[in-house]
């Protein structure tokens, strides 16, 4: 059994040429965790927080999740959770669903309430100016290790934010890594890969 080297391995300095910026893009992907083909998932050989292939099982597809507005997915965050022997990370993803009808409630809300999910969200900060692997900071996976489950679902009829729609909070507790990125050689290729997640399954 190898020992984990809990060491930092580079200078802790901000990037002046490619400064980090806050926020997420409006469009993401949500998948039933049971549909992810972990056997076909490929990690980068040297960077173990980078997934190169996030395959779904035969006949399965993911679903787009679009949150409009200037600050989509507000409330999405990662925080450290102290443990007895090892600290872990808790990922929180907030989704606003600007709809409320029988189909949405049956096909989306009821599922979200009890299912376990994996999400891919696109950061506004993509790291496109990085010398090596530009674009590798764009797509982040939530729920890869433990799956995201709902911790709060609310339909406030007089909410000015959700205008009568739904606010869903999903959480992944005890993730061993601070982040898992999805990146396949370039931003363009990764964007195409993410697009295939929601294509009709063949």
């Amino acid at each position: 059994m190898a020992l984990c080297d809990d060491l930092i391995k580079r200078d802790v300095v901000p990037s002046c040429s490619d400064p980090v910026i806050e926020g997420l893009e409006q469009e993401g992907v949500i998948m039933n965790r049971a549909d992810v083909d972990f056997a076909a998932t490929v990690f980068n050989t040297t960077r173990k927080n980078v997934v190169e292939t996030l395959a779904l099982k035969k006949g399965k597809k993911g679903f787009k999740v679009v949150v409009p507005g200037k600050t989509p997915f507000t409330g999405t965050a990662t925080t450290m959770a102290a443990g007895t022997y090892r600290n872990t990370f808790t990922n929180t993803v907030s989704i606003v669903i600007l709809a409320n009808d029988p189909d949405v409630c049956q096909d989306v809300i009821d599922g979200l309430a009890n299912g376990t999910y994996v999400l891919v969200l696109e950061n506004k900060y993509k790291g496109m100016q990085r010398e090596t692997t530009p674009g590798d900071a764009a797509f982040q996976i939530y729920g890869f290790y433990q799956g995201c489950t709902a911790t709060a679902i609310e339909n406030n009829k007089y909410s000015e934010d959700t205008v009568g729609g739904w606010m869903v909070t999903l959480e992944e507790a005890k993730s061993p890594k601070s982040a898992v990125f999805l990146f396949k050689t370039s931003y363009e290729a990764t964007k195409a890969l993410v697009g295939t997640l929601t294509s009709p399954a063949l």
């Binding site: 779904l56 399965k60 370039s186 363009e188 195409a192 890969l193 399954a201």
Partner: peptide
Amino acid sequence: YALKNGVLLQLKFGSDEFYTNA
């Protein structure tokens, strides 16, 4: 042939040429 969703093929590593079911 068909690929699983979420799979993108590159015949050469890092190539701009990549393939999906499309």
